[in-house]
Design a protein around this nucleic acid. Structure first.
Lengths: 324, 324
DNA sequence: TCAGGTATCGATACCGGTATCGATACCGGT
DNA sequence: ACCGGTATCGATACCGGTATCGATACCTGA
């Protein structure tokens, strides 16, 4: 007992004993047991993190934000990957909950009823991330993908784009990419327009796929002046294809990605994109949990919106690309 | 007690009772408590994963391999990020160990003595990943980065490259990139050569940085015929720079990346690279742990080498690039 | 000198499961 | 009818910590 107190720096132990215990612990290589420690409390100091996937750069940035914010705290992330499958999501969440985590970070809003139920029953702080469109249980950090699509469309309409196509990679039920498309289309409709061409592929996005889809789109519809992509990497792939073919981007054709990841800087200014603060989403979500798990005001649910910043680059002036 | 048996499908419970218990559990929304369950056993069904970072695509691929292999098992990853800091690594590992994980996956070989000690004391299966060069405690999955560098150098020498430069982003003590450089240089020395030019930057690699470093390198040493980069993204950045400047890659200048990530396909055939199976490293490591944690032959330590595949693309023929 | 307070420490119960073992009921064979 | 075996289930101890409370020693002021 005294040993336990000494090791965790609790009250009621003399300085001398603390030293003795610490030395003894070091000598025998004592490691402690979070399991036992957590069992006495109502919950552990684990933080559950549920993401659809990790290969996707988007989520690895978010994850990095989370681990960064959790870095020097007593909290540690456990995590599960859903692959956009709702049944698997339910299982993963239930599994994590049985570790009695101090808090949870779950990707997406509008969760299925059964998933909602166990999360509510757990009675721990919950932050849903990425998306503010759907139904939120407790707190949320992200932005409206519908609005992000809408805003980008408006920006493009404003600089005179009219014949706009859409190229998308939407895996399973990645609702966020779909919502951007919906929002974009809403703006188009308000201007009495619609996508002049649409190419969809239910596959994981990649540069190579971007090249392929671009080729298809150009065959179907050679007179587009702008294309809205679901992600940066397919937009970049398309740009590379255009560069090879001598199609001037953005003066003849404006390409618009999403997220503002590193690859969108491959040819500075050539791609337009919505720059999102993905690491920020992770850190903000983790910070909310930290506040709720350690602080007092544990009943306040928060709503943090990190609106994407639209970057049109050279697409604004539309001048033919010149190299300095 | 009977309830516990029923829920986990153990022996000695009648079919009728199992049904009754399951229904009751569903009704009251029973969730279970892994903490208590694990406390009775010598270790939990957590798998500790220690990585330097997650923003880096390299590690997010590895992580994805791990979660994929662990997907439908009872095991769950907890994890920690070291940011290439050995003190932090020690703390992270110690912290994870006190969850009594069933096994550990740790990035890198040749760990510091104190870290080694606690890992050995834990007496659980351990897989070190990424690197087979250094000292291994138990099992290892990866390849020799020294040899990877050496092999690539030999391949380049074989196709006649002589004036070879080096452009590197080596953060903190990322020893693996450094080892590739050493191996590459060993091959050069065997041919009585050395890097004709060297540009280093202690920063996280990115496309933009690749552009910048390429520009610097070309100023310092305009007559290079080949450049070895530490990663794909700076190589890709360099390629983009060359394309803008009208420098023909690879006919005038061969650019060589590492990993064979998506971005190396931005202009197919234009970049040479060593294609590594990062997801494979993750899955193989996880599979070893699964075997060791569930199976019988729990004393066999394994050594799985996933040699990178050298892809020279158009750099082989060296013909001026033509578009089809 | 003694009562009351404080500093320090150990004994005990408990967290929520599981392993173990004993108790009970029921079965078939002789 | 009786016995040994099996199916089913509950009581108990225990995993390794921590909260609580009581015990002891020592200190301070009256």
């Amino acid at each position: 007992m005294t040993a336990s107190r000494a090791l965790r720096g609790a009250q009621d132990v003399s300085q001398a004993t603390v030293l003795k215990v610490n030395n003894a612990a070091k000598e025998i290589g004592y490691v402690g047991n979070h399991l036992a420690a957590s069992l006495t409390k109502t919950n552990s100091n684990l933080i559950g993190v549920v993401l659809p996937n990790l290969t996707n750069v988007v989520f690895s940035h978010v994850m990095n934000g989370i681990t960064e914010a959790l870095g020097n705290t007593i909290f540690q992330p456990v995590f599960g990957v859903t692959e956009w499958d709702e049944d698997r999501e339910y299982e993963v969440i239930k599994n994590i909950l049985s570790w009695r985590p101090a808090g949870m970070i779950v990707t997406g809003t509008g969760l299925p009823a059964s998933t909602r139920l166990i999360l509510e029953r757990a009675n721990i702080p919950l932050v849903q991330i990425m998306d503010t469109d759907g139904e939120v249980i407790d707190s949320v950090v992200g932005f409206s993908h519908e609005k992000a699509g809408y805003d980008m469309a408006q920006a493009l309409l404003k600089i005179g784009k009219r014949r706009i196509g859409f190229i998308g990679c939407i895996v399973n039920n990645d609702r966020r990419a779909a919502k951007r498309r919906v929002g974009f289309r809403r703006a188009l409709k308000e201007a009495n327009l619609d996508f002049c061409c649409e190419v969809n592929e239910a596959a994981v996005s990649s540069v190579s796929l971007g090249r392929k889809l671009m080729q298809e789109a150009l065959q179907d519809c050679p007179d587009m002046e702008c294309i809205y992509f679901t992600n940066d990497d397919i937009a970049a792939g398309a740009l590379f294809y255009c560069i090879e073919r001598g199609i001037d981007v953005p003066s003849r054709l404006t390409l618009v990605g999403f997220n503002g990841m590193d690859i969108s800087n491959s040819f500075p200014g050539r791609l337009a994109t919505s720059v999102t603060d993905l690491t920020g989403i992770g850190t903000e979500a983790a910070k909310i949990l930290l506040k709720r798990c350690t602080g007092e005001k544990s009943e306040v649910s928060e709503r943090i919106v990190l609106e994407p910043r639209i970057e049109l680059g050279n697409s604004v002036s539309n001048a033919p690309t010149e190299y300095d």
